[in-house]
Design a protein around this nucleic acid. Sequence first.
DNA 1: CGTTAGTTTGAGGCAGATCAACTTTGGTGG
DNA 2: CCACCAAAGTTGATCTGCCTCAAACTAACG
Lengths: 207, 207
Amino acid sequence: MIFDPSIEEFFQKLGQPKKLKRGDSLFSMGEVPHYLYLVRTGLLGSNILAESGSELLVRLFAPGQLVGHRALLVDEKYHSNAIALQDSLVLSVEKELAVESLQKNSKFCFSVLKMLGKELAFTENRMMSLTEKDVTARVAEALIYLRELYPDYKWTRKEIAEFCASTAPTVIKVMAKLEEEGYISQKGREFHIIDREGLLQVCQCEP
Amino acid sequence: MIFDPSIEEFFQKLGQPKKLKRGDSLFSMGEVPHYLYLVRTGLLGSNILAESGSELLVRLFAPGQLVGHRALLVDEKYHSNAIALQDSLVLSVEKELAVESLQKNSKFCFSVLKMLGKELAFTENRMMSLTEKDVTARVAEALIYLRELYPDYKWTRKEIAEFCASTAPTVIKVMAKLEEEGYISQKGREFHIIDREGLLQVCQCEP
DNA sequence: CGTTAGTTTGAGGCAGATCAACTTTGGTGG
DNA sequence: CCACCAAAGTTGATCTGCCTCAAACTAACG
């Protein structure tokens, strides 16, 4: 993820540090937003749970990423939960201060705008993948993305499943197939990407 | 859709009008963005086509909405097509001028930021719906949204299907069921929503 | 080592896609 | 105004990818 100097500077100056332990919640669905956050270290994830009970890992936040900006801008309650997947450090700035700064400081505002643009592009692409591609392609895509987003994190099959809108058993079966075909290797709960190029082919939905 | 005075003013002052006939393309996948657009009248849609051949109606643009801002901000090529679903009028501003204005005019920038935030929220909700809900719920949701977005437009079953990531035959079957249950009425190619409340219930994925 | 959380496997079922044939609609030109 | 035709809608039969469920296994951690 690309760090934006102007956003970093803003939080450096005005942000209050907040430590989160793995599993801690930053905010929950339905709450009213009071802060804008920036991830410093660690990893957060935002998920929505459907009426059916199944969860979807909507977005992941690595260091350098803003959290809570959408709800803050739209002036609505949070529609997803944000939890720490790892021990993390975030900086927080009060909503009023953040909004005020965005309105006054056009350089800062433009930086946030660009970041939001990237997220929208990413989300639209994901929507496309999730709706049009088969599980194999979705899992392959997820493996590459998740591995590269956070190389050291031990992704569980369930998390991978929630990210690609599938289920743990299915992810396991697909990963077994991908291993057999030489794209990845698995030892214990870890997995490694052996043939990134090949996997990318798989993402394009082979016949 | 909410019109933002500051965005309207900007395009009022600097925008070049451009007329589109139904079916005309505003831009296509892979092209380099040169303009920022604002829809004045009519209706545009952006779609992505998968390798499999199936299309997804990613987003719809009614009057007051910006088009092309994402690709412009992210500085990438378009990843979707934008076509006029109806005869439309859009205002265009050159990319450089738009970017410059965003960087200088923080009020304008903040307006665009808010609009982008809304779109991101909308897209995330849609991603959720498309991946977690069954066809019936998705069609019900699509009917409400599409009807309210543009009450006079004669949506085809195929367009509805592309919007809710399904197929025409399935949409037809679901609509027949919804009619039978008294939620909607159909005469010829038109449909009307009779029981909006009931339909909303259906969206929440009844058992 | 015991306990819990995560993983693996196989059997079975079903929602919804696909396909193809048929009908209706509505716009167009003779 | 009617006949025509392309585009859109409709229907039923069939098929399949993936989910579901449940049971057994394995890793990791105190």
